[in-house]
Design a protein around this nucleic acid. Structure first.
Lengths: 307, 307
DNA sequence: TTGAAAGCGCTAACAA
DNA sequence: TTGTTAGCGCTTTCAA
């Protein structure tokens, strides 16, 4: 019989099995986009970890579009995924999803009211951002600008808050004229940086001294920032020091190499699997892991190499 | 009744439906990795196009690992996806997948013997690579090196062949000492470029003139190449001109901006959906679209800006 | 037009 | 231990 099975290439029908068992051994992952290196790395880590533990990962790109988020969420629920992971930037994490009911959810971002019984793993973006700014302050910078994301996700807000925390802690300026927001893309970073640093962009002569350093809240945007500085004839790190957030692999190969606050996506993915698979298989309680910190990968864009 | 349905948040069970109908309105996508910007853009385009046409896309990252490819392929077949798209670099495209049977397959790469009745959309990588080299020749370069991928996928081989074609057409050197292969990553590009251009890497004094231009077969690797040139004190494009292949969004924000051969991933994704959905819904015949060409996006790494 | 019934392929419970 | 059966929730067919 076994031979016949092998010979005919028989394969069990996963639907029938899932229909009967009520479980599909799959999880859904909702993520805004795979284009920013950091999210791509996160997605890949999650896929690898869950696959290794026997789950199929179904990924949906939401493009920051609330309609798409809801459609994809429904689609995943309809397919009876065992759980859904919401990556940072998916707004369903902060307001209740319709039809979520007793769907198992793990949010990788600060969760708002509306969802209960949701697990979460929360990076302390605020402290991370402040830490990055402190590093710049350690190099003697006083006036530090911020290139951030224009999406109003919790992470974006927290990074800006952290930037402000560090500045206010030493009594430095932290006004809106030092903050520029744009797309999470190289172009977005380029445009924002131009706006902040170009003599035509902001009348620094009137408003005070121009920034000598920047916190850029994503690595892709930092690419654009470097490009903008280069075009403006500003040398990094001598004229402008830069620290970015993300810690993607290619951040070490920019000119100059970026100093970047790295989030350990592998660790986050592993923890996600621990929490979620415990909930799925052992009916474990929802858990939240908060205060996850990144670590600073030193390049030379911050000025550490100077001298 | 309708009210009750809406009120209770009833949702049909996709499994039961799929089980009964024998179709799941979903397709699988196997892709080596999402880390190289070009493949991430391709994956996103495919997801968007198929989603818009009512199909759920289940993506699996194979990491260039044959075992993973086969496991994921099986997993997709078990879930009765209506079709499977094989991205470039998935070796199942070139040798038959076990248990493929009458699974609908679309390969985005030249397909080998073993599979029959497989649709495909094939970019003419060879001509594209040759065209990129010709552009460099048009700038007067004679000795042109090549930074390629060490994976032995058909696309990699074709790009190298195209590089050689263009060189041999004008009787230029095209020897192995001008070719360096590495990982499809910034680091891979950095290492390969160091090997090609560093005075310590290759004894040019003995073997002849050092290259004055490079064809780099992916944008991520080009990042590393630029970084390596910068470190070696070589100015791009004055000392070394560079053209890369891919055409990702961030290629315009490197220093200097890359001249890159762009593949229109959106077009490829749209065509994929046309072919595949026709096969799924109208029992259309497998089709192959060959000779798809990219177009050169002019930056300044090739020397076009030199004034 | 509306309603009842059969069955997709599997698993879990039960009977032998 | 091994074999049999009921039923997961839907869609399709057929009868009323």
């Amino acid at each position: 019989v076994e031979e016949a099975v092998a010979k005919l290439g028989y394969r069990p029908n996963a639907f029938a099995s899932a229909l009967r068992r009520g479980s599909s051994r799959s999880i859904g992952l909702l993520i805004p986009s795979q284009r920013s290196g950091h999210l791509a790395e996160l997605a890949e880590a999650i896929e690898q970890v869950f696959t290794a533990r026997g789950y199929l990962v179904i990924t949906g790109s939401t493009q920051h579009d609330r309609m798409r988020e809801e459609r994809l969420f429904q689609s995943l629920v309809d397919r009876r995924v065992d759980a859904i992971v919401l990556a940072p930037g998916v707004s369903l994490a902060t307001s209740p999803a319709p039809g979520a009911r007793d769907q198992l959810i793990l949010a990788l971002e600060a969760i708002g009211a509306g969802h209960r019984d949701v697990s979460s793993i929360q990076v302390d973006e605020r402290s991370d951002a402040a830490f990055a700014v402190q590093h710049l302050q350690g190099h003697g910078h006083q006036v530090i600008g911020c290139v951030a994301n224009s999406r109003h996700t919790p992470a974006d807000g927290l990074r800006i808050a952290g930037w402000r925390d560090a500045l206010e802690a030493v009594g430095a300026r932290a006004g809106g004229e030092l903050l520029a927001m744009g797309d999470t893309s190289a172009e977005g970073g380029y445009v924002s940086t131009q706006a902040l640093l170009s003599p035509h962009g902001r009348p620094w002569a009137v408003r005070g001294e121009s920034p000598s350093a920047l916190l850029v809240t994503s690595d892709v945007q930092a690419l654009g920032s470097l490009s903008a500085c280069h075009e403006l004839g500003l040398s990094v790190p001598d004229d402008i020091a830069i620290v970015s957030m993300g810690g993607t692999a290619s951040a070490s190969y920019t000119i100059p190499p970026l100093t970047t606050l790295r989030q350990d996506v592998r660790w986050i993915a592993t923890r996600s699997a621990d929490v979620l698979i415990d909930q799925i298989e052992n009916e474990g309680k929802p858990r939240s892991i908060t205060g996850v910190r990144g670590n600073l990968v030193i390049g030379s864009s911050c000025g550490c190499d100077a001298g």
